[in-house]
Amino acid sequence: MDTLTLHLEPEQDLLLSLSEVAQEKQISGFLLGVVGNLSKASFQCPGRDQPTVLEGELEIITLNGTFDADGVHLHLSLSDGACQVWGGHLEKGSLILKGADLLLGILKQGQAARSRTKTRLEIAVLPGCPWCASALRLLEAYNIPHLVITVDNDVTFQQCQQRSGMNTFPQVFIDGTTIGGFDSLEKLQRSGELLTLK
């Protein structure tokens, strides 16, 4: 196993920064350690529909999980100014306050945690959409490799609409074919077919 240090500057997004490094360097592995703080933390607590968002001087206590070119799955715990500890599944929007240093464990070729073959499932999501968040949590819970298309502008919206013929989100594609939205994804999960996409 090789290691890589990653330094993040103020205002960088913790999740997106690690995801960008994994994609750019085509690496996979897991987090060995972290020291740093956040000005804003966004994390998903179990059983809640929306992420919890905290702001202030937030000290990172632990950050555990895996990363590769297809995605990042991290669990965060942190302390606020009253020394109250919070934690959950790290979401986008967690911003570095003064700085953060991460130590990454890089798996060698052939040891990747996820398949290096082409990702079969794509999902188009709208920011802030509860059904989209539920769909992403379902995929992550079953560790299904997936490519996320974030629909945050009119051009991407129109491209997805033309591709799927749908006006609602999420939009799920398997092997390039539209299968539907969250209900269709949940149906695949109940039938056991979702596991065949691992």
Rank of each mutant, 00 (worst) to 15 (best):
D2E: 06
L4S: 07
L8K: 06
E9L: 11
L14Q: 07
L15M: 13
L16E: 13
L18Y: 10
L18H: 10
E24G: 08
K25Y: 11
Q26Y: 12
I27N: 05
G29E: 10
L32C: 13
K40R: 08
C45D: 00
P46V: 04
G47M: 00
V53Q: 01
V53C: 01
L54Q: 02
E55G: 00
I60F: 06
I61C: 04
I61H: 10
N64L: 07
N64W: 08
N64G: 14
N64F: 07
T66S: 10
H75D: 13
L76N: 11
S79D: 02
D80F: 06
A82W: 06
Q84G: 00
G87V: 01
G88I: 02
E91A: 01
L95E: 01
L95F: 01
L95H: 01
I96H: 00
L97M: 02
D101E: 11
D101F: 06
L102S: 10
L102K: 14
L103W: 06
I106S: 04
Q109F: 00
Q111L: 10
A113T: 11
S115A: 11
R116E: 13
T117Q: 14
K118G: 08
K118W: 03
T119K: 06
L121E: 14
L121V: 12
L121A: 12
L126Q: 08
C129Y: 07
C129D: 14
S134G: 05
A135K: 11
L138A: 09
L139P: 03
N143F: 11
P145Y: 15
H146T: 06
V148W: 09
T150M: 10
T150G: 05
N153Y: 14
V155A: 11
F157S: 03
S164N: 14
S164F: 12
T168D: 15
F169S: 02
I174R: 09
D175G: 12
G176L: 11
T177A: 13
G180C: 04
D183R: 10
D183A: 12
S191N: 03
S191W: 06
L194T: 05
L195W: 07
L197K: 06
L197R: 05
K198P: 01
